[in-house]
Design a protein around this nucleic acid. Structure first.
Length: 885
RNA sequence: GGUCGUGUAGCUCAGUGGGAGAGCACCUCGUUGACAUCGAGGGGGUCACAAGUUCAAUCCUUGUCACGACCACCA
């Protein structure tokens, strides 16, 4: 056998295995166990502009664990990768690049040329993030890879649009929307960031017609007065009641508008008087609807003022604000200016101040779909994990607003609505160049706008499986793979994406698109701060992989991931789990030379040594637990369970206890031990494979039988009722406690661990006594015991000794060689205090008649047993202590 | 203002109606063969605070305080 290096070096190993898996088609859906249903995950498609960050690393680690786990369990697994064209994000990026490198705007190029540029950009950079996904081990089926602008998803978009259009659920309407004057497009509410801005409160006088009175109105946006079509007060406001119904005169424009009453007006805020600009304010728009006010648009598409604001026409809103204030001052109608901090909406993409504007847009009436999407979660047809996230979902879906789906961009799916050049008929069609559906005229004009990005990603669960093309659906296995099992994502797109998929998927198929939604945490830095470029605390997954290996990173993310909201990722933690990966490597180095002695995986339970029974029993429980926890999305508990077993049970005890056997001359015992060591280790690497795929595949090559294939498609370990040995586990636990106590005692009195000493054990547990006797060789080996005696507690304890008491065994060491008596006495006193407290606590319970009456029988029994133990322990400590006073 | 969440060891966080846990950090000891990316042992907590329910509360209920996230509003 060749030399195995002392430390595991992941470089080289990782790429090698990924390539092998892919080449051998391991990621393709194959039903290895026909009795199990398919298991499908749809990968949240990254933006073409995307770059791998820790969020992806976590998101994908979780999905890959689930897919690999289910694949090994025999399910036909499919993990579908994809990519999103990300309308605004991509267009903005390419626009910037064009301007920076060539000084060109998209208008210089025209729509067609500009789109060519975006496609070229996509070809060049689009693969970047996908290659990064391979580095983190994603076992997705790349043959299913789908881009939202591919022909298939485009057909899905058209089909869905046309169906809803014909149903009357898609309509065009004037509505107040967020307008980004830089991108010159409508953007959705969720694409608006509200930022705190230091602004001013301008108090302005509005005269009241046929009256001497003036109304003082406070506003932060005086330039919008050109668009005012009313002044509103609260209906219950005594101060202004008499003015309701009269007319107010807007300064500068001298236009008369009605004074109306509306409950939205807050009497406490500002002056209690509100100028109403339905064309450029969301609340005013609603007031305007209620009062049937005229809507006056005072802005151009680029955000400058238009002809409806003659005095400031052509100026930007910022310039216009300044000018308006000057004009008001000149006209003596500006009362005062106050400092005022308030929130102002900014475009996420361009950072421009968002201007609310009324414009003609396309909308989906989501009312019915949203209702259904709520009941589907209420009935748990789709379950959120952790459950609490459903509240976030409900808060959106219970109050659905019309979904504005049109965007004034070029990059995206053009809206399939056409207007006949001849008869003016407007209709939707899935065809590229349809004839007028009314007069059959061939000249029709398509709506220039494109659809919101989420329109196509909302259809992804369907379109990635070939919908609406029947042939492709058959080829891709739509009926088998829809709906999928779980969606794994972050909370930030519950509304954007999860809700949309729920509505759209259900609308088309009448089935929810996935049965679970696992919402994972946000990865933050070790201090809990969000990772951001400006803070300089961004961790790059690829760098981490380089430094510590992909498996260590994946294990760290998994072990940090349960039902929590934040993961504070400390590099020291990753290093710790890197060490764990290395530990496994070294455990393998230990067993490697003995593998040739191992004959077969089959373990004959009848003739097993009690240590072997113990480890098999422990392993069996681990298998049970891990399987349960993965199914529950408790990656933290699953990983911790494996970690504890490997470290504490397998390495620290089983391997240590095996050294003597393996160095002996008893060939049959050696072979059997090698068998068990190998069996357990094979199970361990299989258990770990979903989390740490690379090292486990590497080790598997040395562990597999000749007829066995790659680990990635091995059968996941299953609970085996034959491997339950309660008595051996019980004995072993006590044995470990005795050994630990001896080591502890030696340490307390400053005897070197190496030094061999005599030890006397006293126990009334006959089974344990005989077990300890049987294990005297191991006691000698592991606790450095020279000679020992095991007696029952009726025997007088040695006077000149130091001692330690456990619940079942008292341990005595002779005083010869004891260096630090004082320390021992101090410690013994502490033990006494503890035992006293423990005893009093349970004693109190037992003396309480109410406890005896009400507590369940097994609890009473347990407490009684404890009381006995504590009392024994206390007595023996006190007895021993007397010798030192 | 609304919703959700958090408060447990120095740090990061699990956990349970009946004996307070892990990792890291810290202290002591230990390198000849699996592993110093290691081993053995150890110290350390009023489970935020208060009241209530209960035989029994770190856990359930209510309130208080502190912190966080999201949503809405901010004329």
């Amino acid at each position: 056998m060749q030399e195995i290096p002392k430390t595991y070096d992941p470089s080289g190993v990782e790429d090698k295995w990924y390539k092998t898996w892919e080449e051998q088609g391991c990621f393709k859906p194959v039903a290895r166990d026909k009795t199990k249903p398919p298991y499908v995950i749809l990968m949240p498609p990254p933006n073409v502009t995307g770059k791998l960050h820790m969020g992806h690393a976590l998101d994908h680690t979780v999905q890959d664990i689930l897919i690999r786990f289910k694949r090994m369990q025999g399910h036909e697994t499919l993990w579908i990768p994809g990519q999103d064209h990300a309308g605004i994000a991509t267009q903005a990026k390419v626009e910037q690049k064009l301007f920076k490198e060539q000084g060109l705007s998209k208008h210089d190029l025209g729509r067609e040329k500009f789109l060519e540029h975006i496609w070229a950009w996509k070809e060049e950079y689009g693969d970047h993030i996908l290659n990064q996904f391979k580095k983190i081990g994603d076992s997705c089926d790349w043959d299913y890879f789908t881009f939202t602008m591919d022909e298939g998803p485009s057909d899905a978009v058209k089909k869905f649009f046309v169906d809803l259009f014909d149903e009357g659920l898609i309509y065009q309407s004037d509505y107040i929307i967020n307008w980004d004057p830089v991108l010159q497009s409508a953007i959705s509410d969720a694409e608006v960031d509200h930022k705190e801005v230091q602004g001013k409160f301008y108090h302005i006088h509005y005269r009241v017609k046929e009256s001497n009175q003036v109304l003082e109105i406070a506003t932060t946006r005086p330039e919008t007065l050109f668009g005012d079509t009313a002044v509103a007060v609260n209906p219950n406001d005594d101060r202004f009641e008499h003015l309701i119904g009269k007319m107010a005169i807007i300064p500068l424009v001298e236009r008369e508008v009605p004074i109306i009453a509306d409950p939205h007006v807050d009497m406490e805020v500002g002056t209690g008087c509100l100028k109403v600009t339905p064309g450029h304010d969301f609340n005013d728009y609603d007031i305007g609807k209620r009062a049937d006010l005229e809507i006056l648009n005072i802005l151009n598409k680029d955000g400058t003022l238009n002809e409806n604001a003659p005095q400031v026409q052509g100026l930007t809103t910022k310039e216009a604000r300044k000018k308006t204030v000057e004009l008001l001052e000149t006209a003596n109608q500006l009362v005062k200016v106050e400092d005022h901090t308030h929130q102002v909406g900014h475009s996420q993409r361009s950072d421009a101040v968002v201007e609310p504007m009324v414009s003609k847009q396309w909308f989906i009436n989501t009312e019915e779909m949203a209702k259904r999407s709520v009941t589907d979660v209420e009935s748990e047809a789709m379950k959120f994990v952790p459950k609490g996230w459903e509240n976030t979902y409900f808060s959106y879906q219970r109050n659905p607003r019309p979904w504005c789906i049109s965007r004034q961009l070029w990059w995206g799916h053009q809206i399939p609505v056409f207007t006949c050049n001849s008869c003016g008929h407007q209709f939707a069609s899935t065809e590229q160049k349809p004839h007028c559906s009314k007069c059959s005229h061939t000249e029709v004009t398509q709506d220039p706008d494109v659809l919101d990005t989420w329109f196509s990603s909302g259809l992804f669960p369907l379109s990635t499986l070939g919908w609406p093309n029947p042939e492709k659906m058959k080829q891709k296995g739509f009926d088998r793979f829809y709906p999928s099992n779980v969606l794994v994502t972050g909370f930030d797109i519950i509304f954007f994406w999860v809700a949309r998929m729920m509505m759209m998927g259900t609308k088309v198929t009448n089935k929810v698109p996935f049965s679970d939604t696992y919402i994972h945490a946000i990865v933050r830095d070790k201090e809990g701060k969000k990772m951001s470029k400006s803070l300089g605390n961004v961790m790059d997954p690829l760098e981490l992989i380089q430094e510590t290996g992909c498996d260590a990173m994946r294990f760290t993310l998994a072990v940090s991931s349960g039902y929590n909201r934040n993961i504070n990722l400390d590099p020291a933690k990753i290093e710790g789990y890197r060490n764990f990966v290395n530990k496994i490597w070294n455990a393998f180095r230990f067993i490697a030379p003995h593998l040739e002695n191992a004959t077969d995986e089959a373990i004959e339970t009848a003739d097993l040594h009690h240590h072997e029974k113990w480890i098999l029993s422990e392993l069996n429980e681990v298998i049970k637990e891990v399987t349960l926890k993965f199914d529950d999305y408790r990656f933290d508990e699953a990983c911790n369970t494996i970690y504890q077993f490997v470290y504490e049970k397998y390495c620290s005890w089983f391997i240590e206890l095996s050294k003597g056997v393996l160095n002996s001359n008893n060939e049959s015992l050696k072979a059997q031990r090698a068998n068990v060591l190998r069996f357990c280790f094979r199970q361990i690497v299989k258990l770990l494979h979903p989390v740490t795929p690379f090292i486990t595949e590497e080790l598997w090559q040395f562990l597999k039988r000749e007829d066995e294939d790659l680990i990635v498609i091995q059968k996941y370990p299953e609970y085996n009722p034959d491997h339950t040995f309660t008595e051996d586990v019980d004995n072993m636990e006590k044995f470990i406690e005795v050994i630990t106590s001896i080591r502890n005692l030696k340490n307390t009195v400053n005897i070197s661990p190496k030094e061999e000493i005599e030890v006397r054990l006293f126990t009334d547990d006959e089974k344990l006594a005989s077990y300890l006797y049987k294990s005297r060789g191991f006691l000698k080996e592991l606790a450095r015991v020279k000679a020992g005696k095991i007696k029952d507690k009726s025997i007088e304890r040695p006077a000149k000794s130091v001692m330690k008491a456990t619940a079942h065994t008292e341990i005595f060491l002779p005083l010869d060689g004891v260096i630090d008596i004082a320390n021992f006495v101090e410690k013994l006193k502490k033990d006494k205090d503890k035992a006293e407290k423990d005893f009093q606590k349970v004693e109190k319970k037992l003396k309480n008649p109410k406890f005896m009456e009400n507590a369940p029988e097994d609890i009473v029994k347990k407490v009684k047993a404890e009381a006995h133990e504590f009392e024994e322990k206390l007595k023996s400590i006190e007895h021993s202590l007397e010798n030192f006073q």
